[in-house]
């Protein structure tokens, strides 16, 4: 069955749509677009829409990916045209292309994501001081965070191996942190955890909370960082 890879963003009010609700949101948009969505067989059929990696509620996604299967092969342009006008506010289709049927699923290949976090500065800080703080953080041999497991027990995890890079800059009273973190089924690092650990370690003068963006999703298989596109 023809498979289409979508590149989209999820910003504005849509960043508060949960992962579970997002599937339904796309399903309804596809139906409104009049496209022949493919369903799984079986007792309770599910639409064949598969996302690369769940995005936490309230994180804006600037370059997200999902695969969509249709029952009928249609030109990419036609699918894009039909779908783009039918998405709710804040979800924007950026591009769409067909992918060969044997292409591995997005979820199987994605293993890293880039993020940006922005917050208001509450005091003075120089670029040099910020760089020192970031480097000191990255030089930590391990960064333990506490996570609850499924049975509610608190366990310690070292997230340092999952932090591939991090940098900071300043812009008009705003502090901007960019990071590349491990994502996917093993060794996943949540941006919130990394930021909390960084804040604790560096004691930067930040007012309020960081506003979070996921800026890209990549695969690092075969030692080479590559876009999922």
């Amino acid at each position: 069955m023809p498979r289409y890879r979508m590149l989209y963003n999820k910003v504005g009010p849509a960043r508060y749509i949960s992962h579970l609700d997002l599937l339904r949101t796309f399903e309804r948009a596809v139906r409104r677009a009049g496209l022949p969505l493919a369903f799984t067989r079986g007792f309770n059929p599910h639409p064949k829409i598969a996302f690369a990696a769940p995005l936490g509620v309230s994180i804006a996604g600037e370059a997200e990916y999902a695969d969509l299967e249709l029952d009928v092969l249609l030109p990419e342009d036609e699918v894009a045209w039909a779908l783009s006008g039918k998405l709710p506010q804040g979800i924007g289709l950026i591009d769409i292309k067909t992918v060969p049927e044997q292409t591995p699923s997005l979820m199987a290949v994605v293993d890293r994501a880039t993020y940006r976090a922005e917050a208001e500065l509450a005091g003075r800080i120089s670029v040099e001081e910020l760089n020192v703080a970031v480097n000191a953080f990255l030089e930590l041999p391990e960064i333990p965070v506490e996570r609850k497991n499924k049975s509610g027990k608190i366990k310690k995890h070292d997230i340092r191996p999952g932090i591939f890079s991090m940098s900071g800059r300043l812009n008009n009273g705003t502090i901007i942190i960019e990071a590349e973190l491990k994502t996917g089924s093993s060794g996943n690092v949540r941006l919130e955890e990394a930021l909390a650990a960084f804040k604790k370690n560096s004691r930067l003068p930040v007012r309020g909370e960081f506003v979070l963006y996921r800026t890209g999703l990549y695969t690092g298989r075969n030692k080479k960082k590559k876009m999922l596109w």
Binding site: S18, V57, Q89, G90, E209
Partner: peptide
């Protein structure tokens, strides 16, 4: 609002932007 929303349950209750909202 965007400072508050990440801190509450089901923030989509408060953001609007749904399909067919006017």
């Amino acid at each position: 609002l965007h400072q508050i929303l990440p801190r509450v349950q089901k923030p989509a209750r408060y953001t609007g932007g749904e399909w067919n909202a006017v």
